[in-house]
Every structure is written in C-alpha cells, then in structure tokens.
Design a protein around this nucleic acid. Structure first.
Lengths: 195, 195, 195, 195
DNA sequence: GATGAATGAGCTTTCATTCAT
DNA sequence: AATGAATGAAAGCTCATTCAT
C-alpha cells in the first residue's frame, strides 16, 4: 500500500517535473498534470496537498538524484581535477539526457521564490546537491589540491557556471553541443580553484 | 510631448522592474503596477501594448545600463585582471544598490521563456550586456592576457558565476555581504581564464 | 453521468439562446448567462470552451430542431403548394412561440461573422435546416410541380423572405400578428416557384 | 464652414460604414475609425456625439442613397416587371460594387437593436428605402399589374429575398456571381406578386 | 482511493468617452 | 477645430482547490 502510494507519488513528480520545466510553473495547471497521468484532479490532491508542495517535493527529489551521483564521485580515489571533470560530465550529461531535471532548477526553483519560501528556506530543499559539492570542496582543500577560500565563492562558481551553460543551451545560442564544453569548463573551474 | 511620454515610459519600467523582481512576473499584476504609479490601468496600456512587451522592454533597458558601465571599463587602459575586478565590482555594486536590476535577470528573464520567446529570441534583448563582455574577452585574448577559448565557455563563466552569487545573496545564505566576495571571485575568474 | 452533463449542456444552450437573441451576442456576457442558470462562470466553461463555441453549438442545435420539423413535412404525401404552406406555418409558429430561435438566426448568426467563421464556414452549422429545404425543392422539381432553377435562387427566397418577415415582426412594424401572413406568403412563394 | 463640416461628416460616415460592415459594429473601435481618417479621436467626437449616433446616421445616409436610385426607377414609364428587374439590378450591382452598403443593413442594422433603438424606432432610419418600395408597390397595384395584398407581405419579399441573396454571397456559398441571379430573382418576385 | 463538477476570485486586456491644452 | 493622454468599468477566461458521490 504505502509502497504503491510511493510509486504513484514518484510518477506524479516525474510528470510534473517535465511539465513545469517545459512550460513553466505558472503555465502548468494541475489538470494538465492529472490529464497526462490519466488520473483525476481530485485524486492527485490525495498525493500532494498543494501545487506548491508538489513543486517543493520535486526539487528535493531532483537534488537527491543529482547529489547521489556526485556522492559516488566523491568516494572515488582520484584527483580533484578528475573529480571536477566527472562532476561537470554528470551535470552536462544530465542536461542532455534529462534536460527537465536541470531546467527545473533554472526555470522553476530559481525564479518562483514565493512557491519555495514556505518549506524550502535557505537551501534546505537542494541540500542533496549542495552537501556533496561542499564535501568535494572540503576534501580537495584538505588534500591541498584546491586553494582554501570561502565555500560560497567556490559553490557559486560550480552552481552558477554549470547552470549558466545549461541556460545558454536552453536558449539555443550555443554553437556546439553541450558535451563539447565539458573539457574547457572543467579546466576553467580547476584553474579557478586550484592551490 | 514625446519627451514627456518617454519619461513616463521610463517611470513605468522602473516601477515594473521593482515589482517583477520582488514579487515575480506572474505574481505582479498590471493593476499593481498602475496603482503604484498612481495611474489607470487603461492608460498604462497606452505606453506598453501588453505585459509581455513591458517585460521585454525592461530587460533591454536594464541590459543597456549594465552594458554602458562595462563599456567604460573596456575603454580603460588597464590589465585584463583589473578589468575583471572592475566588472565584478560593477555587478556586485549594482546587486547591492539596485538589487532589482540584477534579480530581474535571474527571476524574470531567465525563467519565463514564454514571455520572452516572441521578441527576445536568442539573446537580442540582452545584447547590451553580452556585447561588452564579448569585447572585453576578445581584447584580452588579443593582447595575450587570456587564453584563447570558445567564447561561450568564458561568457557562461561570467554570467553564471556572477548571477549565481547574486542568487545566493537573494536566498539569504551568504554569511558575508556581497562586497566581501569581489576579490575572491575576480581572482577565480582571472585564474580560470588567464593565458 | 454523461447524460446529466448532456442535459446541463442543453439547458445552458437554451438560456444562452434566449439572452443572445434578446440582447445581442456582444451585449450578453458569460456572467449574465451563468447568473441566469444559477451556476458559476468557471463551471460554464467546463461545458463550452468559449463564448464563440457556445454560439456555434446553439446554431447547430437550433437548425437541427427546425430541420427535423421540415423533414416531417418532406415525408408527407401532399402537394408542393401544401408543403410550402406547412413550412411557412412551422416557421411562423416557431417565431411566435419560441421567437428566440428564429431571432437567433437573424440577430446572432447572420451578423457576427467573426464568431462563426472558425467552425461554421459556409453553411455547415445550419445544414440541418438547409438540407431539408434542398430536399423539398429537389423533390418538387422532380415531380414537375416547381420550375427547375438554380437552387440558391429558391433557397434565398425561402430563407430571406421568412427571415425578413420575422425581422419586421421583431421591429414591431407589422400591423397584424405574424400568423396573419401565412396564407399570403405561402401563396407568394408558390407563385414565385411554380412550374 | 458648415460646408466643410458637412464634407468631413460624410467622409467619416464612409470610413465608418466600411469598417462597421467589414469588421462588425462591436469589433470596430472609434480609434480605428479615427486612425483610418488620420484624425484624432477627440475631434471625431466633434462631428458625432457617440458611436451609436454615428451608426444611426450611416443607416439613414445609406437608405437615402439606395432610395434615390429606386425613386428614379419609379419615375420611369415602364412595366412593373421591368421595374422589378431594375430594382433587383440596382440592389445587386450595389452589392457588387459597394458591398459595404448592403452589408451594413445585414451585419450592422439588422442585428444591433440596442444601437438603433433610441433614434431609429420602427423603420424611420431606413424610410429612404422603404418609402420607395412602397411607392413602387402602390403604383403597380393601382395600375393592375400586381395583385393587391398586404404591403408588408410584399415588402418582406423584396427586402428579405434580396438581403438573403447578399448574405449568401457574403458567406461565399453562391456558386455564381451575384449578377447571375438577377433574371431568376426578378422573375420569381414578379411571379409572386403579379395580378 | 478515486472521480470530476463546481466554485469564485482574480487575471489581462479593451474601449467609449472626456477634457486640459 | 483639433489633439491624444487619461479614465475605469467591464469583458472573457483561467485555475487551485474542494467535496459529494
């Protein structure tokens, strides 16, 4: 029962993630989501108490998945430069294969403060992702590979740079496929942060 | 006559900029804007044909102002490292003194694709800003100060990194005032791009 | 369920028919219609996607009802002159008992081309009525009772003449009750068309 | 002065006639009319006190022009059958060459009762046209060419039949040019009314 | 758990008309 | 006579959410 419910919750989140990312939070209606799932509006409310809460659950869920992948990188026994490369790779590969996931950060989370203010204050709802970046950075500073500096200066670089590139991709202004930029950008980040 | 009208247009843009940035595009209504200006809804439509067009004019206007300031930096006879520092300074100072201007990029332009798709395709409406970054980069590559690489890799760094920091500021998670990060971030950008 | 919904659809059409006919399409608002039905505006939109579509469904519905009655006349084994008399009778009786139905043709369908252009091109939405007139005419020509001529010359006579009389009735200029004219007009039509 | 004013009044009526006929009364705005005339909205109100009054003046003006032409037919020394033919000819030629004039009856006058109720009760505003039809009919009855019957039965035939044909033309359903129908329809009308 | 009809406040936009200049 | 900025009420339509079944 709870299991079945959890599965349905997840499928709702996946569909909503797609619609929110593609069409925007305000342009996506609850009936839209229900219709795409083949379920009734009323029933959808049995799984998520409100549209805002649904949006919040999605950002947590997405951060968790992304954080999970970075966690695996953090556990590898490779250099900081290689880790950076892998993280960029993960991010851009996700942007290519599941663009909704990354776009959700940019087009939904970033810009609908009202929606996330009650329940996602600070960065609680994206901690799945931020925590792993923090761990990566701390480790690499400890090992002497990266220069010691304010964490947010480093975090802003990761988050902003990667997000910015995906935004440019979304705008259709990148002359190359997003993959193409992995090496350049990994190097830039490493150069920016190295000891 | 036309002068008076131009002034009123500008005052409308300034008020709308503030409201859109603070409350979000969709949460700000035309009556809200008109009320804050002490004018009638109908009359506002004499100045801007639609809410979307108003939003588009604002992004152009804002990009122009920001671009203007960077243009002045570009004309100075100083090193690339110093230029980067000045650009970061301009950006963060603006973020501090007129936060609406920067937040508009993040919370309105970045995330409401539908609003800007008809009339602001590609980056036309932000060319005031992007053009100056491009000029800075080309000059510095020509002079041998910065490594030659794909423009977008460099542009994404500027735009994403700076934007990302302002986002963190807006979320209230930065332990320090935004000014505090100017030096760190300028250095990181320079390290990332230097020859 | 679907049955209940169909009934409600019909009651909406009947109320809208009345209001559109009496007050004009543009002077009748959706809130007017909803109020008269004791239902909410939002719910009305669950039954008809737009005001234009509501207007289109009404003309189809009305044509169907009128066509149905003429179909019965067509199936009778009587002379063309008698059929004409019966058709005029049906038309004028309807104009007397359910004036909205006839006035809808004159005051809504005839004159709001924009409303019917998407979805009712040509005469598709009034085919319920036109088809029966066509059948009547073809039969009577085949039997040699009416002169063979361009169908539209004959159709325009029926539609225009009958409609014109009802228009005059609506303007309040007819000195007599509409019934009074049945004989005269039937004779005129028959004389016009007879072989 | 008054002369100049009269000329301008007429030019306003001609432009408004066109726009009302083509786009409908409610879809045509006063600014639309003013713009097409290259004059200001405020000034237009110096010539016509309201949109409704403008519409009323147009119907009078149009009826007068049409009536004028029929008056000339009435004065000719020809048979009733020939007069009918000429009247149909005038009507259809006008429908072809100045379709706005005829369409104004169908699409504006016929269907916006509210607009004409104050100032055009009964048929006062179209008396220019109706009077001439009445004269034609009375003369032809007096001379024994047409059967004596209720005037409205005859008038409805003229007005409705001719209007109906032009409506069909406007709908684009007539397989032939409107000219083509002149002979058929003249004959039908004559047959309907002849003694 | 599941349905979907119902609510109603709220949105963007329009437009006849006025009036200071 | 001429201008056009200004008004503000009203329109069509949307949509998160509820609730009787």
């Amino acid at each position: 029962m709870t299991d079945k419910k959890a599965l349905k919750r997840e499928s709702i989140m996946q569909v909503a993630l797609q619609l929110f990312s593609n069409n925007g939070f305000h342009k996506t209606t609850i009936p839209d989501i229900a219709a795409k799932l083949g379920m009734s509006v009323g029933n959808l409310y049995n799984y998520f108490k409100s549209k805002d809460i649904l949006a919040q659950e999605i950002i947590k869920y997405t951060s968790e998945i992304l954080g999970e992948q970075i966690r695996e990188v953090n556990m590898l026994d490779i250099s900081a430069a290689e880790k950076i490369h892998k993280i960029v790779e993960i991010y851009f590969t996700t942007a290519k294969e599941k663009p909704e996931m990354i776009e959700y950060f940019l087009r939904v989370y970033l810009s609908n403060r009202e929606v996330f203010s009650d329940g996602c204050q600070g960065m609680v709802c994206v901690s799945g992702f931020t925590t792993e970046i923090m761990i990566f950075f701390d480790d690499a500073v400890s090992s002497g590979e990266l220069r010691n500096q304010d964490f947010f200066s480093a975090f802003g670089l990761f988050m902003g740079y990667l997000g910015g590139m995906v935004f440019l991709k979304g705008e259709g202004v990148l002359p190359q496929d997003i993959d193409y930029y992995i090496d350049d950008i990994s190097r830039n980040i490493y150069n920016a942060l190295k000891a």
